[in-house]
Amino acid sequence: MTAAATWESRIPYSALVAGLTLLALALCAVSAAVGYVPFDLGAALSDWLAGRPTLGALVLAELRLPRALLGLLVGFSLGLTGAAMQGWLRNPLAEPGLVGVSSAAALGAVIVFYSGLSAALSLALPLGGMAGAAVAAVLLNLMAARGAGTATLVIGGIAINSLAGSLTALALNLAPNPYAALEIVFWLMGSLADRGTDQLWLVLPPMLAGWALCLSGARALDALTLGEDAARSLGFDLTGLRVRLIAGAALAVGSAVSVTGAVGFVGLVAPHLMRPLAGARPGRLLLLAGLAGACLTLTADIAVRLLPTRPELKLGVVTALIGAPFLIVLIARLRREEA
């Protein structure tokens, strides 16, 4: 084991949760204060709370706050489901992206784009994403129900992932005009820019349901540390756990991807950052990884607005730029631990 595995924090769990929650809320406030137009957050907030329809209040309520809150929700969803998938598959490289849920959601949204439904109905895009994630969830559950082991499930998930990826590429290939293809490509890069309250209200219920489903598996995930037979002998229904976790990941990540596009690596990185602080307990990791995911996503979204590049960098590009080197370091460390 490396030093990282042995420096378990002695910070109490409740203090960790409280600290990360405060940090996430603070980042939300910073996110709301950062933007391209000069903006007085305090004045806008008081105007908005007093119901004065000033420009500041409008910008806050219709643009800044939805963007910040969506960052919080999407990041929490990615971190939480990443931790749930890693615990369930007992694989430190698992995340919703790996098992195909994210790319299936992206495909669903792209199909809606492509068919022109998104022009007719603004909510068609998120609904398409959720439908895509649901298809991936059903496929994963069918594979697992036929008795596939975790290794087979990971391989099956990768197959779903690449199938959805190639169908997305096919849609781009057959796009009626270059402009439509470009629009899809940009959307796929992931962004929180110009999202409104409509999207916020649409994704909130499925996300909350997904979170509840994932968090309900905490104890069973702890027990799975000892393997499937031991977990079952400790009184856990692993079939029920599987259905809850896959459904929870599809609800939370499907709605996240359908609103922001693909924001990669948060689901992979957040659990790894928090694992030492959780004493490696998969159940405790869930909430911590969710909060860390929210902080990472909000930070990245603040960064894209502070960086002087124009047009603004896509959120998914920034998270991948940070996440990919992290993944390489992680793999190197795992190899050292095995050696």
Partner: peptide, 17 residues
């Protein structure tokens, strides 16, 4: 039930295990 070879998948401390 104590399974054969007893896998432990995460670096837990003995007490937590």
């Amino acid at each position: 039930y104590l399974p054969q070879s007893g896998p432990v998948h995460w670096p837990l401390r003995a007490e937590a295990l």
